[in-house]
Design a protein around this nucleic acid. Structure first.
Lengths: 327, 327
DNA sequence: TTGAAAGCGCTACCAC
DNA sequence: GTGGTAGCGCTTTCAA
């Protein structure tokens, strides 16, 4: 592999000049720059990332941890994050925690000095652990707010409030809630609470937790029917799909036999359901904001104080919700 | 951040000794080792990855590129890969190419000297590009075979042969094939060809390409019905889900009205369909093998020759396929 | 078994 | 605008 000095020799200049020609082109005369660039090209020169990181303390890498890749919610999140990283000339690397706090902590630990910043989607570690990480390197949490770290949170609880009002307005008196994809999610209990508080005079039956799986939705159907609820809110699209399938098979349909709503509209993940009333969650936007904030932290002075962003969701009222049949 | 020398001073030994105590414990007397380890612990010492990489030439990082995270097939692949990497004490980092050959090439380029090896799932670059990458660093391709690079391929074409025979045996004379998730997939045309060749005296109508999306399956239904086929083979689970939903809504069911089969059984991605005849693809196993081979290459001598693994798939005959109704 | 010293490839400071 | 030089933090000869 060609080194800086090889290029220097070939171009008839010093190594410092080559370094500048490559990293700070404006500090170099045009003619020298051309010569250096030509020589570098000729030799197929490439920066040695380790040497550069050693002296600058920067790696050009940003880590993004997700609990699981099986949850389609993270696909658009990562896509948005990637876009923001690319714009800043950074590489975004994705790591999977499997929802394990230990694994998550180990990952942050081992990656801490190999990346310029760490974004954690739905982190499961304790607040103290996260705060400690935030002291070591730029950290942004997505869909969880902790003291001492910047965060981006999609306001699905507020969305649930809207959804609850919508269903109550239609006259539903008993609503079944199919819990979030992850038992340890910070947001999940907040969503349920928001739903409950939005319809204080109605009954909300929580069926939870259910994994975000098609078959889980199929299995959940009987439980839902047993509750006697006239409306169902499912947190995950995949889950709703299974529920819908089973209900259709049983000859039931929305909104005639029951109302159906979904708390995440995963259009970007190929799971959008055209006629289902849903909360549109700005997943890509959330990923983008997370990385943008991370870049700010990485560029800025240490000890900058944490910021917290709350992203609104949109209620998409479609044809799967309506007034309950009056028996 | 504590450096090696800080630990050395604290333990009353030289930096070399600390280095050895940490990396080659067997070269050090037990008492010294204990002292060093205690001092390191005390100071919260952590290796500096950049410095280490600079001198050893190894980073402890393995990259795994995937075309898209929206395709649930890759979730179990990455999970298996992760497991293998963990076992070897490496970090697995995932990068997304968006199915763009340019992006893929750029990623390999920019990551080449920051990782110890590169695994590429369903790569879209030309064979020459991939071969060139393989000359620079250990490279393993998944679900694509190219000259000059090691590969792991899941033998879905053979699975299609089995599936074709199964459907022909049931008496189906016209079979609709819903194409693979990715237009540029190396395997997709091979699957279709295998299906065709397995039933030379039957008609195979290829409806392709369809993205792996629920709604695409819904949309595809009319096209499928128009073909007059009595059996449908869908490549993607997500697609099949949409198809199934629409057909159920239309009052059609399998295997009475038509036979239904799926070419990937994504149980690990939460999309398994309990009653659907499907090919079980060993996705996690494929991810594991890919990384294991990568580790061999990274450990072994340069210029080791490429190996090619073919992983069998299993035909799971379930209740969604049967003999066509005789009109 | 341990220590001293060289050096991995680069950037940044200080002269010129 | 350019070159010399020091040094980032570590591993690894080589001597003791």
């Amino acid at each position: 592999m060609a080194r800086l000095e090889d290029v220097a020799r070939a171009a008839g200049v010093s190594a410092s000049t080559v370094s500048r020609a490559l990293s700070r082109p404006d500090m170099i005369s045009e003619s020298t720059r051309h010569r250096v660039l030509a020589a570098a090209e000729e030799l197929g020169y490439r920066h040695n990332a380790a040497a550069r990181a050693l002296v600058t303390g920067r790696t050009g890498l940003l880590a993004f941890s997700v609990p699981s890749l099986a949850n389609p919610f993270y696909a658009p999140v990562i896509a948005g994050a990637q876009e923001a990283a690319e714009k800043a000339g950074c590489e975004l690397i994705v790591v999977v925690t499997d929802g394990s706090p230990e694994r998550e902590k180990a990952l942050m630990d081992r990656l801490a000095d190999r990346v310029d910043g760490f974004a954690a989607a739905g982190p499961r570690s304790t607040g103290d652990t996260l705060a400690a990480v935030a002291r070591r390197l730029p950290l942004v949490t997505l869909n969880r707010r902790v003291r001492g770290a910047s965060s981006v949170v999609i306001d699905t609880p507020a969305g649930m409030t809207g959804l609850g009002a919508h269903l109550a307005g239609l006259g539903h008196r008993r609503i079944a809630y199919l819990g979030g994809p992850d038992a340890g999610s910070w947001l999940d209990p907040r969503r349920l609470r928001a739903l409950r508080e939005s319809v204080p005079d109605r009954e909300v039956v929580a069926l939870t937790p259910y994994p975000p799986e098609f078959e889980a939705g199929v299995r959940a159907t009987d439980a839902v029917l047993e509750t006697g609820a006239t409306a169902v809110v499912a947190y995950s699209s995949t889950l709703l799909l299974g529920l819908l399938h089973r209900m259709t098979t049983l000859g039931l349909s929305a909104p005639g036999d029951f109302s159906l709503a979904c708390a995440d509209d995963l259009s970007a993940a190929g799971l959008a359901l055209p006629d289902i009333t849903a909360l549109h969650v700005p997943a890509a936007e959330a990923g983008r904001r997370t990385v943008e904030r991370l870049l700010e932290l990485a560029a800025g002075s240490r000890g900058e104080s944490a910021t917290h962003q709350l992203l609104p969701v949109e209620l998409l009222v479609r044809t799967s919700t309506g007034s309950p049949a009056t028996p």
